[in-house]
Design a protein around this nucleic acid. Sequence first.
RNA 1: GGCUCGUUGGUCAAGCGGUUAAGACAUCAGCCUCUCACGCUGAAAACAUGGGUUCGAUUCCCGUACGAGUCACCA
Length: 481
Amino acid sequence: MTVTRFAPSPTGYMHIGNLRTALYSFLIAKHDGGKFILRIEDTDRERLVEGATDIIKSTLAVTGLHYDEGPDVGGEHGPYVQSERKEIYMEYAKKLVDMGAAYYCFCTKERLEKLHEDDAVGGYDRHCRNLSKEEVEKNLRAGIPFVIRQKMPLEGVTSYKDEVFGEISMNNSELQDQILMKADGYPTYNFCHVIDDHLMGVTHVVRGSEYLTSTPKYVLLYDAFGWERPVYVHLPLLMGKNADGSVSKLSKRHGAVSFQDLVKDGYLPEAITNYIALLGWCPKQSETEFFDLEGLKAAFTIDGVSKSPAVFDFEKLLWFNSEYIHKLTDSDFTERVTPFITSEIPESINREKMLALLKTRISTLSEINSKMAFFLSLPEYEKELFLNKKNKISDFEIVKTVLTEAKSVLSSVEYFDNDTLFASLMPIAEKLAIKTGTLMWCIRIAVSGMAATPGGATEIMEVIGKCESLARIDKALGMLA
RNA sequence: GGCUCGUUGGUCAAGCGGUUAAGACAUCAGCCUCUCACGCUGAAAACAUGGGUUCGAUUCCCGUACGAGUCACCA
C-alpha cells in the first residue's frame, strides 16, 4: 500500500508551496487508495511558533486533505509529533554508532565556526571521526557536550532514483559528516525524518526539490540500517516573479503567499487547491483544467509532475477564483460572501438581487464592498457623464426629456422588478424614436452615477427600489436644470 | 566557488525522432448586449545557443549560456 506523509515544521503560517507539497503527497497516496499521514517536525526548538500546528491542521481541514494518521486522529505508529519521540532517535543513533556508521563529536561551536570561516577547509574537518573508544568514553563520563555525526564514505558514489528527476548521483566526497543528534538531545531533520518514515511505513517520500542533493545522505542511512529505501518524489519549486522581471523562490515579497492570506483576500479554498495542483503537474489527456479534490485523486499520477520550477501567477489564480465564484449557487455565494461585507445594508435594498447581480462580476469575495457601494449610496458624478457618443447623446436636452418621461412612467409602476420595469420603460424609446441603448443609458447613469455598472438600469432599480430610484432621477434632473 | 537539477509564447503547460508545435491565463480585435461582466469568434505570441547522432531533430548525446537548488547543532 502506498503511504505518504506531510511533515511540516510548525514555524508559522502555511506557505502555498507547503500546501502544494501536502496536496501532491495526499494525492499520490489517495490515487492508489493509500494512506496519508501528518507528522509534525518540531525538533527545532528555537524556531517553534505558538499556534503554528493549529494553522497546519485547519488548513488541511478546509482544503479537504484529511489524514489517516496524525496528531489528534492517532494511528498505530504514534506519536506523530517528533518532540514526543525523542528517545527513539537517540536509541537509533547509538545503534548507528555501534555499527560504525556514526560517531560522537565533541567539537565546540567555536571550533566549528572557525572552520566555517576558513574557506579552504570546506565544512567540518572530521576531527572526532577517529577518536578511540577510550577517549569517547572518557569525554562522555566527563559530561562534555556532544553531537552524533553520520560517518560518510570517503570515496565512491551514492545514487538513488527519483520518480520525477530520474537517477541522481553524488560523489561521496561531497558529503559532509552531518549531525544526526544535536547537543540539546534533539535529532536533526536529516536523521529523524528517516527514522520516522521507516517506522511509520512511509513508502513514498514527497517533498520539494531542495532536498534533491541531500537525499544521498539519507539513502546511506537506510542502507546502514539495512532498511528498504522509499520511493522518492521530489517536486519542482514554486517561484515568484520579481518587480524587475526575474524570478526567485516564492516568498512574501511576491504578495500573499500563505493560504490564510489568500483566504482572507477572498480566494476560495477550492480555487486555490485547483490552481496549485496545476503548478508543476499536468493531467494526462484532459480537456478541462477544473478539478475538485475527487477529480484530482483520480487524475493524479507522478509522471505528470514536471521538473522545471513554476512561476506562481496571481492572474490565473484570480481567473480560477472568479470561475469558482460564478459557479456557486446563489445561496452558497451569499453564505460565503457575507462575512466579507463590511457595511450595513439598508432594508430598502433588495439584498438577494444585489448579490445575484454581483456574483458573476467579482473575482474575489473581498471585492464585494467596492462593487456594491453605489447601491448603498449614489456616488458624486458630473453631468457630462450622461454624454455618450455611441448612443448619440451629444447634448443634455435628450437626457432631460428621457428622464422626465421615465419619472412619470416609473411613478405609476407598482412592482419594481426587472421585467416590469423594462416593459414599462420601452414605450418611451418608441415615443421619442430613440434606441433602447440610448434610453437605458440615461436612466442607468441617473440611478448609478457610474459609467460601468453591474447589471443594467432596470436591474439596478430593482435592487434599490422605487423610492431611491425616483430620488436619484430627481437629483439628476436637478443637475441638468 | 564545488556539486545537483532545470531551460517550449509574458505565465502555466502538451509534446516523448517526421505535427500547420495543442490547450489555458493574460494581451489585442470583432460579435453579442440596457453600460459592465459573462459568452462566442479571431489575432499576435515559443522550442536558450553551438556542435554532433540520424534520411530527418523541440524530442537523443556533448559543450556553452542563463536560471534555480544545495553546501547549518534549519527544515
